[in-house]
Computed example of a mutant assay.
Amino acid sequence: MKIEGNPRFGYSSIVSRPDFTWPDGKRLAVYVALCVEHFSYGTGMGLAYSPGLSHPNSYNWGWREYGNRVGGWRLIGLFEEQKLPLTVLLNSSCYEHCPELVSAFSKRGDEIVAHGYTNSEHPNGMSEEEERKTIEKVTKAIREAEGKPPAGWMSPGAHPSRHTEDLLAKAGYKYTLDWPMDDQPVWMKTDGGPLLSVPYPHEVNDVPMVILHDGTGQAFADMAIDNFDEMLAQSEKQPLAYGITIHTFIVGQPFRLRQFRRVLEHIQKHNDKVWFTTAGNIADHYAGQFPPPAGGSNP
C-alpha cells in the first residue's frame, strides 16, 4: 500500500520549535468553544441521542433544540458570572431561528466563528461548488449581522472536504479549527495562500466524552481539569494552546452545567499563569510572532 502524504503541512515535533510566549509572558492559552447549532426537523444529519428512530424524531430534535431555548442562556449566565469570553461556533441558520440568543453573545463581545449553515449537513459530501456557495452564504450572514466577517471556521460535524481549506483561504478566512493534531497553531498550505490551524479539542469535547462514551458530567469536568493541570505543567517547556469544546444542548443541561462551573473556577485560580482568550486571539497572536513561512506551512 502506498501511504499518501498530507499536502497541507509536514511533520514537526513540538520539542524542536522556536520558543515564544502568549501575552504578558504567559505560557498557556485557554479558550472555550461553545457550539450553537440548529438542526432541520424531520430531515438531514445531526448528532443522534436516539439512534435508529426514523424521522420525524421529536425526542432527538427536541433534545438539541433545548440548547437554543434554555442551555445557551444558562451558559451565558455562567460565563457572565465568571467574567470569561467565549468562542461561539455558530450555525448561521441560528440568525433566522434564534436571533435573540445570537444577539446575546454578540452583545457580550464573544467571538463568532463560522460553523456552517446547519449541522444537518456536512461539507464532505458536497460538490466543490456547493461548498463554495455555502461558505459564501455563511460568511455573508455573519458579516451582515456582526459588522465584520468571521476570521475562523469550524466545519459542521468536524468533517471538512478535500477542498475546504482552499475555499476558506480564498474567501478570506484566517484560521480553521478542523484539525486536532497539535497543541500549537500550525500554518497550512492551500490554493488560496496560507491558512492557520488553531488547536481544537476532539478529546476534551462533550460530544465524544458524554454522548459517544457515556461519560458523566463529573467525568467530563475531571477530564477537563486534569488536561488543564497537565498542560499547565507542560507549558513550562513549550507554550501551548488548550481548548475545551461544549455544546449548548449537552453541557447546557443543569446537572452538567454545575460540574462545568467547577472547571472554570479551577482555571480561574491560575489566572497569573493562564491567558483565557478566544481562538481568534490565539490565531492573531501566533501569526504576529510567526508569519507564514515560505511555502505556506510549517516545516
Rank of each mutant, 00 (worst) to 15 (best):
P160C: 02
K107F: 06
P208F: 07
Q184C: 02
R69A: 15
H55E: 05
K273P: 14
P7I: 07
D19Q: 14
W61T: 04
S92I: 08
P150F: 01
V88L: 09
K137M: 07
G217H: 11
Y95I: 11
Y95G: 11
S161V: 05
A294F: 04
L34H: 09
F39A: 01
H163R: 02
M45V: 01
I225L: 11
T176P: 05
Q184I: 07
L212W: 13
E265R: 08
G71S: 01
S58T: 03
E236M: 13
S93L: 05
P51G: 02
Y31L: 03
P291T: 10
T245R: 05
P56Q: 00
Y11N: 15
P293R: 14
A279R: 08
L168Q: 09
E146N: 08
R256N: 10
I250G: 04
G296T: 06
K26S: 07
D226E: 15
G147D: 07
G5K: 09
A145L: 03
G72K: 06
F39T: 04
A104Q: 14
G42F: 07
S58W: 00
K26M: 08
E4N: 08
G296V: 05
P292E: 05
V30N: 01
V32Y: 09
F249C: 05
H55K: 02
N68D: 13
N205G: 05
V138W: 08
N91G: 13
K170C: 08
E4D: 09
Y59F: 15
L47C: 06
D272W: 05
G192W: 12
M181C: 03
W187C: 10
H202W: 11
A29R: 07
A241P: 02
I135C: 10
G243W: 00
P239D: 04
T176K: 02
H163K: 00
Y117V: 00
T134A: 09
Y41M: 01
H163Y: 04
A219R: 14
I246M: 13
M154G: 10
N281R: 06
G280P: 08
M223H: 10
P156K: 00
F228M: 13
D178H: 05
C94M: 15
I282P: 11
K237L: 12
Q82P: 04
L34K: 09
F220S: 03
P7K: 11
A294P: 00
T164A: 00
P194H: 07
G71Y: 00
I76A: 07
N227A: 09
Q268D: 14
M188R: 13
D214I: 01
Q218F: 15
V207F: 11
F220I: 02
E81Q: 10
V207M: 07
R64V: 01
L78F: 11
N271D: 11
E144L: 12
G147A: 01
H213T: 12
H202Q: 10
A287P: 03
Y59M: 06
T278L: 14
